[in-house]
Amino acid sequence: MRGWGNTLKLVVLLLVVWQLMAWFVGDVALRTPLQTVVFTAKLVATPVFWGHFAETAQAFGMALLLAVAIGLSLGFLLGLNRFASEVLEPLLVAVYSIPKITLYPILLLSFGLGIASKVAFGTIHGVIPITLFTLGAVRAVRPVFIKTGRVMGLGTGHMIATILLPAAMPEIFTGLRVGFSLTLIGTLLGEMFASQRGLGFLLMNAIGLHNVDLIMALTFLLVLFAGSASSLLLYLNRRLYERA
């Protein structure tokens, strides 16, 4: 298992760099890994943290659900309709590359200052990669599979469930993996910019109070969660490709 060895080496390397930076920069701006872990353990024991955590988790969960549902259906719809995908794909790619944070005030004005605008913001981050990857995957399914399905008289629902989905699974999963990360980033960004609850808000609040312990602990938790979730998804993704 060379992959695990490399991950372990990387973690050790990052910890060493962190420790050296903490020594170099000093106590004003950084904490050492050990101090951060100790403070994180304390933070996780407080009920206030779990309140904000629940808010973020709820917003993220809803945003992810919406992004996956809309992205998959749009992806299949466009993947099965060549012309519609020619029309819409360049638009999606253009929207994918813009700094979406500029759209946040518009969402705030239309959804109000609450969980709805956070969910909407997370969703628009995640939905486009899922759509684009699904679209590409469905279009790349070997035509002979689709012809076989048609010869056997499968309806659209059956065709998707028994032929398209299994054949395109690895790439669709790649889209879901990217969508997962971007939805999380979108949700947190939304909380950082304008929100009264959630981990992103807690982080912004900590800057206002110059609470370095809290900033470090929250950054550590967020990076830990995002990193390990994405590594797990990447591992599953590679398994899918190997099987295919």
Partner: peptide
């Protein structure tokens, strides 16, 4: 060694580091 970092890099909410950078 760095490959896993590159593979998961864009999953990490980089803006979470912004407060730290302001302090620095």
């Amino acid at each position: 060694t760095l490959d896993p970092l590159f593979a998961t890099y864009y999953a990490i909410p980089m803006f979470a580091f912004y407060p730290l950078l302001i302090v620095l």
